[in-house]
């Protein structure tokens, strides 16, 4: 009996690995294929069946991309969006989360319910009216529609996540500081924030990723200014008509350049990524 169950276990473990490896290949092939294509000549890309190893290895594709596309400008614009997004979430969202998690005031719970409801609301409901409003106050074709909401902490998901974490910090620490005459702002900055580094790291990563990925808003709100395009919009505009990609090698080189930073961030902070995702799901 024991022998049989041992054998059964070995068999099922083997089968598990088999399935997982097959799945891993499916997950990784698109990325490998992108990098491989980015290093090929256009002639080699057209060969059927496809060849995996670029021959010759065209590192010059990457140089050419910088010549054809204002990558540095796009990167600067993306960084404006990313940095304000990160700043707004780490500072403003953390302040707001502190208010919801660790202070009492009349109407607090009602306001928090309001915040949760915005979490569920489709963005499109606000897209058109916001366009109208931004148009009236002269914000169209500036960074303001992306920067101002972020800096004011209009990011219910990060507030929610940080609040969950703040609630877990023992109340006695705050009480002790209050007796010592520390203000609420002081408690937030000197006690709660230093103890919340993992949650802040997770939020930083999410905010970075979201800013890096932002596509629809820059597309809609900044369409008239080619010099304000972020990487995402720049990459989109490189592609040709529907379902086809001209200059595939350059396109894939720029795609690779756009993927590398987030993968590097993921490699550096994987623990916080997973922790952050977990924090969302379990308490959602």
């Amino acid at each position: 009996m024991a022998v049989r169950s041992h054998r059964a276990r070995l068999f099922s473990d083997g089968a598990t690995h088999l399935v997982l490896v097959a799945g891993s290949v499916i997950m990784l092939v698109p990325l490998a294929w992108t990098v491989s294509t980015s290093l090929k000549t256009l002639q080699q890309i057209a060969i059927w069946p496809p060849q995996w190893i670029p021959r010759p290895v065209m590192w010059s594709n990457y140089v050419e991309v910088f010549r054809r596309v204002p990558v540095a400008l796009y990167l600067r614009n993306t960084m404006v969006i990313v940095s304000t997004n990160v700043l707004g979430s780490v500072v403003t969202c953390a302040l707001v989360a502190y208010g919801f998690a660790r202070t009492q005031f009349p109407g607090r719970d009602a306001l928090f319910m309001l915040l949760l409801s915005t979490l569920m609301m489709p963005y499109v409901v606000r897209l058109i009216p916001l366009f109208v409003i931004y148009n009236q106050i002269g914000w169209i074709n500036t960074f303001l529609p992306l920067v101002v909401p972020a800096l004011l902490g209009r990011n219910p998901f990060y507030i929610f996540l940080l609040r969950q974490f703040f609630k877990g910090i023992p109340e006695e620490l705050s009480d002790a500081a209050r007796i010592d005459g520390c203000s609420e702002l002081g408690i937030w900055w000197r006690i709660v924030m230093p103890l919340s580094k993992p949650a802040l790291a997770a939020v930083t990563i999410f905010a970075f990723q979201a800013g890096w990925d932002d596509f629809l808003r820059p597309l809609v709100y900044m369409a008239g200014r080619t010099d304000l395009r972020p990487l995402s919009v720049g990459l989109y505009l490189l592609r040709g008509g529907a379902g086809q990609i001209p200059d595939t090698h350059y396109m894939m080189a720029l795609t690779t350049l756009m993927i590398i930073p987030v993968l590097a961030l993921f490699a550096a902070g994987q623990r916080y990524f997973i922790q952050g995702v977990t924090l969302t799901g379990l308490k959602g």
Partner: peptide
Amino acid sequence: IYYLPSVVPTVAATIVWTF
């Protein structure tokens, strides 16, 4: 490995899959 694709920016992922 399984989590990796979900960090790839949407625009980049879409270009990859178009190809």
